[in-house]
Simulated assay, not measured.
Amino acid sequence: MPIRQQPRRTARILALLSLTQVRGNAEKIEQLEINDLLLGAIRSLTTEVENALETAADELNRSNEQVFRSETRTTNVGSAKEMLKDAIALTQKAINRLGNVLELPEFVQLSQQAQVREYAIELITTVNRRQGEINQMLDDVMIDWKLNRLSLIDSNILRIAVAEMAFLQIEPKVAINEAVEIAKTYSDDDGFRFINGVLRKISDQLTK
């Protein structure tokens, strides 16, 4: 059963997951209700589950093909095992994402919905309005890496945290800690470490 979360944590999660689903100008976004945000978040997570399962199925098929061709080649057996391991990991990721889909409505129900809606919309509108500046700030600190090479989840976790630090007067330590905690649930295994490092560089620049 989900534990009660602070309204702003829930708002950050809703903003993160519904960011790519929300369309329109600032005025239209400000008219969205909590259920609109929740629907966008669920659609986003559902798409991720479907993609992860599709990729896992492809890996499983490839590993099966390797097994059938491996009667005389031990190297093929090793390759098939690796593919099977990847397929299992991807399936587990999909199951975890599905759990997030099922828990999200209860998270919102347990939180103070008016505050969740207000802050989620503030985050979405700030990221949309300031996206050029936010993207540039991130690209400037990511050595040998670019924002457009990251997964959509990771890039949006970063954008939301930078929006908070640079434009919404949220203390950098709070914004970074929240981004890392959310990344532990919604990013890949090592994503939260990368996000932590990038945001600390942003924080250093903002406090100079």
Rank of each mutant, 00 (worst) to 15 (best):
T125Q: 06
L147M: 13
I170F: 08
N156Y: 03
P172V: 07
S155I: 10
I160Y: 05
R149Q: 15
R159I: 01
R149D: 14
I160T: 06
A166T: 07
V141E: 07
N128V: 10
Q169A: 10
Q131M: 15
L150V: 07
V174D: 09
D140P: 06
L168Q: 02
N177L: 15
I170A: 06
V127P: 01
V141H: 07
T125W: 07
L138H: 00
S155W: 06
S155A: 13
L147E: 09
L138Q: 01
M165F: 10
A166M: 11
L158A: 03
K173E: 10
A166G: 05
L152G: 14
V174S: 08
N135G: 07
N177D: 13
W145N: 14
N156F: 03
R159Q: 02
A161T: 03
T125P: 03
I134R: 00
N135L: 10
E164T: 05
R159S: 00
P172A: 06
A161Q: 01
D140A: 14
D154N: 10
R149M: 12
T125Y: 06
S151C: 11
R149L: 14
N177A: 14
L147G: 06
I157L: 13
V127D: 02
M142N: 05
D154L: 09
V141M: 08
D140V: 13
D144V: 10
